Each structure stands twice: as C-alpha cells, then as structure tokens.
Amino acid sequence: MTEWFYGIISIIVVAAIIGITKVIEKAKLEELQGSQKILGIVAILAITGEIIYLSVAFGLLQFALETITSVGVGIILLGVAFQTKLKNAIAGISIAINPKINIKDSIEVENVKGKIVQFGLTKTTIELEDGSKVMIPNVKFDEEIIKITSHKKQKNSNS
C-alpha cells in the first residue's frame, strides 16, 4: 500500500515541477528565445525520472529489461543471418543516391560489359551487348574495381 502512496505522490511532484516551470517560463522567460526548449528538457528529465522511479518501485523494470534483452538478441541473430542481404541493401541505397551512377551508363565489372538497365535494393541489372541480362550484387560496387562510363558523355562525344 505504501508503494502506491509514494507512487501517487511522486506523480504529483513531477506534475508540480512541470507546472512551476511553465509558470516561470511564461512570467520570466517568455521573450527569451529557446525557452520552450528549456521547458521541454525539464519536462523530459522529470518524466524520465518518474518512469524510472515507478518502474523500480513496482518491479516493472525487470520485465522491461528482459524484453529489451530478448529483442536485442533476436535483432543480432537476424543481422548475422541476413548479413549479405543487409550489405547489398545498404550498398543499393548508396548507389541510388549517388549522382555519378545512372541508368544507361556503361559498366564493366569482372570482365562483364553492359549497360545498366535497373537498380534494385540488393542487385543491379545490366544488359549485355547480346541482349542478355546479368544481375550484379550491389556490394560489388563497394568491393570491386568497376569501370563506369556515363551515357551523357557518350552522347556528347558522338554528336
């Protein structure tokens, strides 16, 4: 019963602290630029402290730590299992935002020459001179020496 009593009192104290900081901010700091940020920081600190106190007082922290640990282990296992896919996906995002690599550019990687026809999240598709298509894992763009010739330069040189 005393845990509930102290819990309610602590919530009232935190609400009072936040209320007092709002009153001080309105009365004294209203024209001060950034005073809302100060109030926000005080509120976040007070609420975080209250959550930690209540979690410890009512034993909720134990369950939360077990849950966070379980989720963390699961994420690590998935990361290890899908390591290659994750590398390719990150490389794919890097390729997509790189302005130096575009569709229709000529590319040569591991003695394979062709034109880029599609960027995917994990693979880039190139079309060879005979019309066949080859898919290159995006991580190759980070790990291999690749020759890329911009299709814009080719157009200008032909004109």
Rank of each mutant, 00 (worst) to 15 (best):
L61V: 15
I68F: 13
K22R: 11
I44V: 14
I20N: 04
S70L: 14
K115L: 03
K140M: 07
Y53R: 04
A81N: 08
Q118S: 11
I18P: 00
K28Q: 11
I52N: 11
V23I: 15
K113T: 15
K123W: 06
I97N: 04
F119I: 04
E31V: 13
A27K: 14
S35M: 05
Q33D: 15
E30V: 10
I90Q: 01
K37V: 15
G74V: 08
I44Q: 04
G79I: 07
L128R: 13
I41D: 03
L77R: 10
G74A: 11
P99D: 05
E25S: 15
I41C: 03
I95G: 01
G131W: 05
A96H: 09
F58M: 06
E31Y: 12
V80D: 10
E110N: 15
K37C: 09
L78K: 09
I44E: 06
I101S: 00
V42G: 02
T122L: 01
G59P: 10
G19N: 14
V71W: 11
I38H: 05
I95Y: 00
I47E: 02
L128S: 03
P99E: 07
M135W: 01
E50A: 09
S132P: 05
F82E: 11
Q33K: 14
F58N: 05
E30P: 05
I90K: 04
V23N: 09
G114R: 03
L78P: 09
A27I: 14
G79H: 05
V117K: 09
N138K: 03
A81S: 14
L121H: 00
S55H: 03
I95K: 03
I44C: 09
Y53Q: 05
T124V: 02
T84K: 15
V42A: 09
A43H: 04
T124I: 03
E108D: 12
Q36W: 11
T122W: 00
K85L: 12
F58R: 06
K87W: 06
G120L: 01
L32S: 12
E129D: 11
G49M: 08
V112L: 14
T69H: 07
L121S: 02
Y53E: 07
I52R: 08
K85V: 13
K115V: 07
I51R: 02
E127Q: 11
G72M: 08
K87Y: 08
K133Y: 03
F82Q: 11
K115C: 02
V71D: 08
I101H: 01
